[in-house]
Design a protein around this nucleic acid. Structure first.
Lengths: 409, 409
DNA sequence: AAACGTTTGAGAAAGAGGAACACAAATCTT
DNA sequence: AAGATTTGTGTTCCTCTTTCTCAAACGTTT
């Protein structure tokens, strides 16, 4: 639906904003680039790049440093470095077994990261918000308030993007929790708060900083207690009409299968989730991370029941991935979460299942790889989420920060 | 991956192109609009709109006609009408039981449509190409060659978009058929040929001209002999890295289920495809359209076995739709093809299944509706596919047609 | 019917932004 | 040391949209 906001016309002002943002995005995503790299990437002229970079330097977002001679003829082009303190995002994560807070600088620099374990099960929202505020306190004190672009929050639940309400989070025992609003009220800073599903953000992080850099069509599968995921289509994450997209753990793979926590039955999650693995391996299904570690150790040591359990999860993982490959035709599948650690043990059965269940054309150039970011993927993704408005409209940020830019512009 | 082509910088030239294209797209999609409507839609000023419209009028793409007084104060704004002969697309369709050819004008006007039945089963590519050329001949003679923007082709098979090669089409007996090239060589006109999967194009047509107009997040499910589909995400169709996306009929819904023509087993198609319905209803699974008609008649008359068969297909349709709703969080699901005709008979069991298998947040505002375009959806979508380059860069088309515009520009 | 307010088109001038060009600086090659 | 290559700098030019003013076309009010 077209809302009054999305006007499609381009004006001089939008051109400059767009070009400025393009440069900011390239620098944030690719890291330091020479001016002439930017000329090549954007197609703009040296003069135009110079002017835009000048504005960014004045705004404190980037720094120019002389380049070393490269051994090629010609005058060296100065390196434009994203200023990791010039814009900073705060990331929070509410996971089933831990809380995390991080400070990430423009360009992707991880300034600080703090993680604390929390008991599994249902804690009150008040308690979790309090713990998050306490965890992030020291980090916030290290931030220039003018450089804070926003606060991203990853939650193990279904989140409405527009208002940051956690609609359903079975593993936290939450329903319709207005987490964004609660955090805005509780945090000692004024900044926009963006909440999203942890798997969505894990996928975003792997796409920007991990195993899926540069790939435009990506499927991310994240298995923990629940199974979630994220799809990158044409370089952009799918979020759906309300932000609920990516609940791939609740695809029906076996309509007469096991009952799922969501109320349905035969969900993919009941075959490849943490509990499924533990049950298959003969462990307590509620054994948590510790038990998973034991299964991995046992499977690595060759203990038959553990090996079989892991391979069976791999087979079901392959079946579900095949469905999604047939639906989405990605170039790359990234497997994250607990499944990332299990990956080496089940790569074979996974590939075998994909060879059976995915259509030949779609699996021709398909690569399936484990994630590169480990357990911090959702937190890093939360930071990227908070950076998004800056990347979409860098001018806004510059003007907020330096009134001088407003006058000169 | 960024290729040399996709430069992100904006220049004066790209601004004008982009604005021109925005107007052309709005006119093609929404139909005649007053100049002041366009001012509102684009956010450009009256002067800018005037200049751009002038260029389009000079290029023969649109016509301005005086507007009737609307009963409101103020000078009436002239209506800008897309000129249905100013740009024309040819659409072709290679279906399991028919071939079709159509002529569609800018703005969506259906000038002509011809369809011929063909025997089911494997015909040689030569025969089909010959039949298509013969079918489209009279249509092509009615077209100004300068107004022909392109030729879109819908095929019941898996198609690589980049080169129009039909990789797999089990129901046609085709493998790796270079259909785009064959048609370019065989057709008596010079125009770009774009080939795509029929379900992808059916979804495009429903999105632009049918039941999904204005919706930005859509799932289209098209059931015929095979089952295909298409997803609109953020207003744009998903095609995947090679164009193979949308093979939703080959999601695994029952890994121990029936063998599928694709070589796998338990594909959704084996539960909701034409053969599944016919088998369940006690008909010859190869009975084709005729037998389907009998099942529909029998179910409408209340014959128990037919009713149960249709309802069972409805239930399985609901299960698969639920999976995709959980994955994609669309606002609208459109059911097309044979399933469009069956829809009234199975709406209840479909909705019941969705209530069980789809997560509550995702089905909160979800609407499921039958398609509005009937069997012609893929053909109409093929025309839209051919129009796409014009909508993406209207300037290109104008310059091709009028050298004067090139000089003045 | 005339005066007035409203909406919109027309035309000229202005403003903004990037492109084009010429020149200088920095580097490598011969 | 001279020349070729690449790139930054500064100026001018061009393209495109906006802004501003005026006129046209409509409904409403007196």
């Amino acid at each position: 639906m077209s809302v009054p906001g999305d006007l499609v016309g381009q004006r001089s002002e939008t051109v400059r904003r767009s070009n400025l943002s393009a440069i900011v995005r390239e620098l944030h995503v690719r890291g330091p680039l020479s001016r002439s790299d930017l000329v090549g990437l954007t197609g703009l002229t040296r003069s135009a790049i110079r002017g835009l970079i000048g504005e960014l330097v004045a705004g404190g977002l980037v720094t120019e440093v002389p380049n070393q001679p490269a051994g090629t003829p010609g005058r060296p082009s100065p390196i434009v470095q994203p200023n990791a303190r010039g814009a900073v995002a705060v990331a929070l994560e509410v996971n089933v077994d831990s809380l995390a807070a991080a400070l990430v600088g423009f360009g992707g620099t991880l300034h600080q990261l703090a993680r604390v374990d929390r008991p599994r099960g249902h804690l009150s929202v008040d308690a979790i918000v309090d713990d998050l505020v306490e965890l992030v306190g020291p980090l916030l004190r290290a931030v220039d308030p003018d450089a804070l672009v926003g606060i991203g929050v990853a939650v193990a639940g279904i989140v409405r993007r527009s208002d940051g309400i956690v609609r359903m989070a079975p593993n936290l025992g939450w329903r319709d929790v207005p987490l964004a609003q609660r955090l805005r009220e509780a945090l000692p800073v004024v900044a926009p708060v963006w909440v999203a599903n942890e798997a969505d953000l894990g996928g975003l992080a792997e796409h920007r900083r991990g195993a899926a850099i540069g790939a435009d069509e990506v499927l991310y599968v994240m298995g923990e207690v629940g199974v979630g995921g994220n799809m990158i289509v044409d370089g952009r994450p799918i979020i759906g009409i309300d932000g609920y997209a990516g609940e791939i753990g609740h695809m029906s793979v076996n309509p007469d299968g096991l009952a799922c926590a969501c109320g349905s039955r035969g969900c993919w999650e009941t075959e490849i989730g943490e509990r499924a693995l533990l049950t298959r391996a003969g462990f307590d299904p509620e054994g948590g991370r510790e038990a998973i570690g034991e299964v991995i150790a046992a499977a690595t040591a060759g203990e038959p029941r553990a090996v079989t359990a892991v391979e069976e999860v791999g087979r079901w993982l392959g079946i579900g991935i095949s469905s999604l490959v047939n639906v989405l035709n990605p170039q790359l599948v990234v497997v994250g979460g607990v499944l990332e650690r299990l990956y080496p043990l089940m790569a074979r059965t996974l590939e075998e299942a994909v060879a059976v269940y995915a259509l030949p054309p779609g699996r021709e150039h398909l690569r399936i790889v484990p994630g590169a970011l480990g357990d911090d993927a959702p937190t890093l993704g939360a930071a990227e989420l908070a950076f998004e408005p800056l990347l979409a409209d860098a001018a806004l940020q510059l003007r907020l920060r330096s009134p001088a830019a407003l006058v000169s512009a």
